[in-house]
């Protein structure tokens, strides 16, 4: 279509340009307008549900049960921050919000560090079984976490980690590693061999090469991984549902108990859900380039 448009632009100044040119231009104009309209509608379909949740979180319980969030257009006075104030004042929910950080931050840091180390060895140190090990990691990429729930629950029970933040973090680290190694290894092997060898010639040990050359060069990949892993852990519910207790539960698990009476709990659930979304959305909007790259790189997770 773009080509057609270009052709037309060239044809126009020529006197006696073929009629088809004008027609096809018109068609392409209309077609393009139509496409834009369709896409705008699609985008609306994506935005409205989130917008609805946001508005619902800004109306009190009685307003939410009496009428839909869209009435806010006629009665904007209904908007209030009370729900958020209540939520923050709610010790349990606020604690769970903090817990989400306590889980997500270490789980992200550990995964990035461990994966970077392992990926360096898999990319730039020769050792027997390197191929096999890499393939195993690739295989583990799609491992359903359900496979590990029962055994790890037993294991954590034996070590007193069941129901602790440490346990939740460890589980996330384990299931974050295959993807993390896969992503970083892909990037590391793409670093020019000359660069590694130059460092080797310059007298650097493996550790120095890793720290001083590979890590700085791989910054974009590290950024992608960090964001991806952080969001993955932040957004988890299943792992925490199994391994966290009431005191260590992240926000998803804490709010889950309110699901039973959804209709009358909309204000609390919407507010909680939105609170839980604020961090990922901010991360996403600020670092969307890295996030998209991470998703593209980790197509198989």
């Amino acid at each position: 279509m773009t080509l057609v448009a270009e052709e037309v632009r060239i044809e126009v100044p020529v006197s006696g340009a073929p009629k088809r040119g004008v027609v096809s231009r018109l068609v392409s104009r209309l077609g393009n307008g139509f496409v834009q309209l369709v896409l705008a509608l699609v985008a609306l379909f994506w935005l409205v549900p989130v917008f609805g949740l946001l508005i619902a979180s800004l109306r009190d319980e009685s307003a939410n049960t009496a009428s839909g969030w869209w009435t806010v257009f006629t009665k904007p006075s209904e908007l209030t921050l009370d729900n958020y104030a209540d939520l923050v004042a709610n010790q349990a929910v606020w604690q769970s919000f903090l817990n989400t950080f306590y889980i997500a931050v270490p789980a992200t840091v550990l995964v990035v560090v461990m994966a970077a180390l392992a990926s360096y060895a898999l990319s730039w140190i020769e050792f027997p079984g390197r191929e096999t090990l890499t393939v195993v990691v690739v295989g583990l990429l799609v491992m359903p976490i359900q496979v590990a729930l029962i055994p790890v629950a037993k294991l954590f029970g034996a070590f007193g980690l069941f129901g602790t933040i440490t346990g939740v973090v460890l589980f996330h680290v384990a299931f974050g590693l295959p993807f993390a190694i896969f992503l970083l290894r892909n990037f590391f092997t793409g670093i020019p061999r000359d660069l590694i060898e130059a460092a080797r010639m310059d007298g650097a040990t493996e550790w120095v090469i890793f720290k001083r050359v590979v890590l700085p060069v791989a910054k974009p990949a590290i950024a992608s991984l960090t964001i991806f892993q952080f969001l993955w852990v932040w957004n988890d519910m299943l792992v925490a549902l199994v391994f966290a207790d009431q005191d260590s539960a992240p926000i998803t698990v804490a709010l889950r108990a309110q699901l039973r009476q959804f209709g009358t709990n909309i204000d609390l659930l919407a507010t909680g859900a939105f609170l839980s979304m604020v961090v990922p959305l901010a991360v996403f909007l600020v670092f969307q380039k890295y996030f998209v790259q991470g998703v593209l790189a980790g197509s198989t997770k």
Partner: peptide, 19 residues
């Protein structure tokens, strides 16, 4: 090992550390 040979090298694409 390479780092102990007292040998240095100029690479075809220079291999300067970009960072």
């Amino acid at each position: 090992p390479a780092r102990s040979r007292g040998v240095s090298m100029v690479f075809q694409d220079f291999a300067l550390y970009p960072h």
